[in-house]
Design a protein around this nucleic acid. Structure first.
Lengths: 208, 208
DNA sequence: TAGATTGTTAATCGATTAACAATC
DNA sequence: TAGATTGTTAATCGATTAACAATC
């Protein structure tokens, strides 16, 4: 019972995948119901925050008992648009691209790497995790043709902006960027950053 | 000119590495001075935020001209405790561990992978990026002996908490966790998460 | 029913932005 | 000097927490 007109804050949306992940573990463990305070304890958050976060999207719990794990899990998958599997384009077939192509954690969580690109002619045509590496020369048209909306960027920093421009032109709406550089992209294109150095430096501040 | 007693908010500390990264690029490009608004434009932030953030740590700019790039870069390296190189332990020598061990982006930014561990006897003794893979059986003692304070976790989710407990016992104060699981650690141990799935799911919310 | 826990409101806390005097 | 830009203050905005009526 709540006005659904107000868009949920982005910080809240960012936490939903963590809730979903915890619910996946609870499902594995055979837990059928969980309270906001138990879930909070597992995630290192407050119970009030979890209830508040979820209340942006609907009423999923039951007074007295808590949340049905399977039900809330399904609802979160709906909310996050994870009911169908998203095809993903991977750009960059270096060591990191190799690790990502072989990573088993995407499928089952809503994503499948469908296309791999690299600019190195030595790598084009080779196999990577069951996929043939294509040239970045054909990237734009292939992504357009398959209507792929999500890309993972695993290229060197110097190439990242150029590739980004092409991805945007190809219609990609979400980029997971492993290159250590801030990308320029239109406001309607979402970019998330995965930079180990930035995180290590952040933590180094507190050491010593 | 500012009371230095108030600790800087963690969100501010988290942005310092991004400022440092931008200053590194500016140095490469030969830029000697930059204003808060130019820096903000490059990072997609506001000029006021950058000035406010930096003001937590001191007065680094000059009215009329802006910030001396080399000077501010050095100051940020000081603030983030990056003047010496931090030795890092890498746990997990799978595909991801392999990519991390070969990644050239750590050295020069304050970090050097010094020890690699894996639980698989097949991998123990093998070479990974110039380092010999040790058994996780000797992890605690080796990390203690070398007084390593930072670890990168690149093991499967099921093993991550066990390894974390050992790392904490060994005296590690910062963990960069690639396993898709929320870790339990004492409050004085810093943990940062690198989960591509969480970021992809976050962005999927806005697609469609 | 009694106990537990939700969803929501209001209070608190914290971060960002706007504005401008100081000054290079 | 005139123009530009900082560092800081106060105002605004937004997120988190505390508290509790509703209710399973």
């Amino acid at each position: 019972m709540k006005e659904q007109n107000v868009p949920a804050p982005d910080v809240v949306v960012a936490r939903l995948p963590l809730y979903l992940r915890a619910l996946n573990f609870l499902t594995e463990d055979g837990l059928g119901v969980i309270s906001s305070s138990d879930l909070a304890a597992r995630l290192g958050l407050s119970a009030a925050q979890i209830r508040k976060d979820l209340s942006h999207f609907g009423d999923f719990g039951k007074q007295g008992s808590g949340y049905n794990v399977a039900y809330l899990r399904n609802k979160l998958r709906e909310i996050l648009n994870l009911e169908d599997i998203w095809d993903v384009a991977l750009v960059g077939a270096g060591d990191l691209g190799h690790a990502l192509a072989h990573y088993g954690g995407f499928i089952g969580q809503g994503f499948r790497i469908r296309l791999v690109f690299d600019s190195n002619p030595q790598k084009v045509g080779r196999d990577l995790g069951g996929l043939t590496v294509f040239s970045t020369n054909v990237m734009k048209e292939e992504i357009r043709r398959r209507q792929i909306r999500i890309a993972i960027l695993a290229v060197p920093a110097v190439a990242a902006q150029r590739v980004t421009d092409d991805l945007v032109e190809a219609g990609v709406g979400a980029i997971l960027n492993y290159a250590p550089i801030t990308l320029m992209a239109p406001a309607d294109v979402h970019v998330q950053y995965m930079d180990p150095v930035a995180h290590l430096q952040h933590m180094a501040f507190y050491l010593k």
